[in-house]
């Protein structure tokens, strides 16, 4: 943006003292340093997730199959549409934030209030969506994941329309069943009878939904990383919303206008954009890939 940072200055003046070589205020620079350290935390979490995936020898759950529900759409197969909607909400709230910062640079108090309020609304919609997604993830599907007597792990296939059980798919090798091979007894009537007997006699072998110890989608790490990464990100969004509300109140009171600049909006804006930035990476590495 126009301002001090774009002014031409020779190196001797810039680095000779009495002048910030970065041409930013103390607060803004510290916000950047905080964001770098926070980015290291999220980077570490995503790399840890990737490392666990590299070590895993079974089939890692695919985001398109785990997250294919949409509110009020029942069992319709809409892969990642809701997550894409959440991504879009966060991008839009990032845009309203940057428009608020821009209005601040013109000392347009009304503009800042309008855009900041919309940003807060976007933040609440995102948080609400995350609550819905978490509850769906925890609740799980109708038939869940089954551990067989030979130690192999199976995913249940069922008709999304009629909810009828159709068969098993091997997702982790056991002594008898191996990934990618076809077994006649795992389909049709025989499989239905097998599922029923497990359900009646050994219900503990069926896992539905997710908790911190196990989940029906894949290895326990999958659920743990889901809760930790999206939870940590959601916590960031939550604190961002709180900070935005506080700054909005200050703007409404006229504190910024009296101060002569809206840099506080810019600094909270940096934090808010960072939250969007993290989600872009979570979206790719947790949901898409």
């Amino acid at each position: 943006m126009a301002g001090h940072a774009t002014k031409q200055m020779d190196a001797a003046t810039l680095w000779g003292g009495n002048e910030s070589p970065f041409s930013v205020s103390y607060g803004k620079m510290m916000m950047w340093f905080f964001l770098v350290s926070d980015a290291l935390t999220f980077g570490g979490l995503l790399v840890a997730y990737g490392t666990i995936r590299y070590t895993y020898t079974g089939i890692w759950p695919s985001g398109e199959e785990v997250f294919h529900h949409f509110p009020l759409a029942g069992e319709a197969h809409l892969p990642l549409l809701y997550v894409a909607f959440m991504t879009f909400i966060l991008i839009v709230s990032s845009v309203t934030m940057v428009l608020g910062v821009e209005a601040g640079h013109r000392m347009d108090k009304k503009g800042v209030i309008k855009w900041l309020a919309l940003t807060i609304v976007g933040g609440f919609i995102f948080l609400g969506s995350q609550v819905w997604e978490w509850s769906h993830f925890i609740h799980g599907s109708e038939y869940g994941k089954i551990t067989m007597a030979d130690g192999s792990v199976m995913k249940a296939h069922y008709d999304h329309g009629t909810h009828e059980f159709k068969g098993f798919e091997v997702v982790q090798d056991g002594s008898k069943y191996k990934i990618g091979e076809e077994y006649e007894e795992l389909h049709g009537d025989h499989a239905v009878a097998l599922y029923k007997s497990i359900e009646e006699n050994e219900p503990y072998r069926i896992v539905k939904g997710a908790n911190l110890y196990e989940n029906e989608y894949g290895p326990s790490h999958y659920g743990q990383f889901f809760f930790f990464i999206t939870g940590f990100h959601g916590f960031h969004v939550f604190s961002g919303v709180i900070i935005n509300i506080l700054v909005l109140l200050m703007v409404i009171k006229g504190t910024m206008h009296k101060r002569g600049h809206y840099e506080m909006v810019e600094k909270t804006g940096l934090y808010w954009h960072f939250v969007d930035l993290v989600w872009v990476f979570v979206f790719t590495f947790f949901y898409l890939v």
């Binding site: 943006m1 126009a2 301002g3 001090h4 940072a5 002014k7 009495n18 002048e19 910030s20 041409s23 930013v24 205020s25 803004k28 428009l99 821009e102 209005a103 640079h105 013109r106 000392m107 002569g260 600049h261 840099e263 810019e266």
Partner: peptide
């Protein structure tokens, strides 16, 4: 030194930025 005091721009610049 309040560097942020310089972070202002005119309505015309604002249009371009938007």
């Amino acid at each position: 030194i309040e560097y942020s005091l310089d972070a202002h721009h005119s309505d015309e610049d604002g249009k371009k930025i938007r």
